[in-house]
Structures are given as structure tokens and as C-alpha cells.
């Protein structure tokens, strides 16, 4: 033990700066690792925010719908979700290349006609798609409800969208209610979820 200490002391005496260099390297290394862990943790929390919404809904809660502002495809400027507060919103994620989206579009357009835009707004969020293709789709199916383009699909990620189409229902106060429908909406799913959303 004492021999070892003597050797270490002798080494330090020979290289007085080596201890400082090692300490500095350790500090820099540890700081880098800590910084990386913090960044990764923040990234994970932001990625899992969509799953958080599904969990809350499954637990019978009504989480606030994440706000967004996206450019309109069938109109000028941008649409901010929070500007629709006071109206029930059917938030439908779709893409023009998605086959079930073609079956669903007439149902959503019919709901828009039936309820009028004063009480209910269908908002289409087109993602992972060419804008020109989406505009052709809008024209082909005669969609009059607002459709926005989600470049990079970041809004779809916030809403935990893993395929197309998917639909969320938002009540007048801006909270998610009912069911997160994955796949094409049926008439029954639309009626049941609208009944929940319009009642609140």
C-alpha cells in the first residue's frame, strides 16, 4: 500500500501537470455526457407527447389539443387551431396517396354540409404528401372544409398519428374528447364521437 503510494507520489512529482490535465479531461467528458443526456431526455419527452394524449384519453381524461398554425391548401394564409375555439373540431389527418382516405373524404364533406361551419369545423391535415397532389384531391372530392399542409409531419407526430387516415375530436373548449380513430371513419364512429364532442 505504502509502496504504491510512494510510486504514485513519485509519478506526480515527475509530472506535476498530469493530475490537472486528467481532472480537466474528466470534467469536460462528464459535462459532454451530461449535456447529451439532457438533450436526449428533452427529445424523448417531446416525441412521447403524442402517446401522452392517447393515454390520457384512455384514462377518461380530456387533454388539451396541441395548438398548431399551418398553411392552408384551399385558401390563403395559415390556420391556427386555437382560432376555432368555441366550435367543435373534427381533426382529420390524411394524404392523397392513401386509399382509405378516398373513401372517408365524402363522409367528412357530408358532415360539414349537415352541421354548417358555425357549430362544427372539419379540419383536414395533409401530411407526407405533395401539395399539388393534395390540391387535386381536394378538387376531386369537392372538399370545402379547411385543409392545411403539415410539412415535416411534426403536427401529426404531436397527435401520435402513425398512419393515414386518423381522426381526433375536439370540443368547444379545445380539449380532446371521444375516441382517437385510427383508420377510415365509419358513419357510426363519426356520429358517436360527434355526439360526445357537441354535448360538451
Amino acid at each position: 500500500m505504502s509502496a504504491a503510494r510512494t510510486t504514485a507520489e513519485a509519478r506526480v512529482a515527475r509530472h506535476p501537470s498530469s493530475g490537472k490535465v486528467r481532472a480537466a479531461l474528466q470534467t469536460v467528458g462528464l459535462s459532454l455526457v451530461a449535456l447529451l443526456l439532457v438533450i436526449l431526455a428533452m427529445r424523448l419527452v417531446s416525441d412521447s407527447s403524442g402517446r401522452r394524449l392517447d393515454k390520457a384519453l384512455a384514462a377518461g381524461k380530456s387533454p388539451a389539443a396541441p395548438d398548431f398554425s399551418l398553411p392552408r391548401l384551399n385558401g390563403d394564409g395559415r390556420l391556427r387551431l386555437s382560432s376555432l375555439r368555441g366550435r367543435t373540431v373534427v381533426l382529420n389527418f390524411w394524404a392523397s396517396w392513401c386509399v382509405p382516405c378516398k373513401q372517408e373524404a365524402p363522409l367528412l364533406q357530408a358532415a360539414t354540409r349537415r352541421f354548417g361551419s358555425a357549430s362544427l369545423v372539419v379540419v383536414g391535415v395533409d401530411a407526407q404528401d405533395f401539395r399539388s397532389d393534395a390540391r387535386r384531391f381536394i378538387a376531386r372530392y369537392g372538399l370545402t372544409y379547411p385543409v392545411v399542409h403539415d410539412n415535416g409531419a411534426s403536427t401529426a407526430t404531436h397527435y401520435n398519428v402513425t398512419g393515414f387516415p386518423e381522426t381526433w375530436f375536439i370540443d368547444r373548449s379545445g380539449h380532446l374528447v371521444g375516441e382517437h380513430v385510427k383508420g377510415p371513419l365509419t358513419r357510426r364512429q363519426l356520429a358517436e364521437n360527434l355526439a360526445i364532442a357537441l354535448k360538451r
Binding site: 447529451l36 438533450i39 427529445r43 407526407q128 404528401d129 405533395f130 401539395r131 410539412n151 415535416g152 409531419a153 411534426s154
Partner: peptide
């Protein structure tokens, strides 16, 4: 990129978090 965002490129962009 203007249609699909930066994630459409195989090489990560040289800014923001992806710079890492």
C-alpha cells in the same frame, strides 16, 4: 424539403439538434 421537411434527406442537416 419544402414538401416533406428535412427528414426527407438521408444525410442529417447541419443545424439544430441534427448538427450533433
Amino acid at each position: 424539403v419544402s414538401e416533406f421537411g428535412e427528414a426527407v434527406l438521408a444525410a442529417p442537416p447541419t443545424r439544430g439538434f441534427e448538427l450533433l
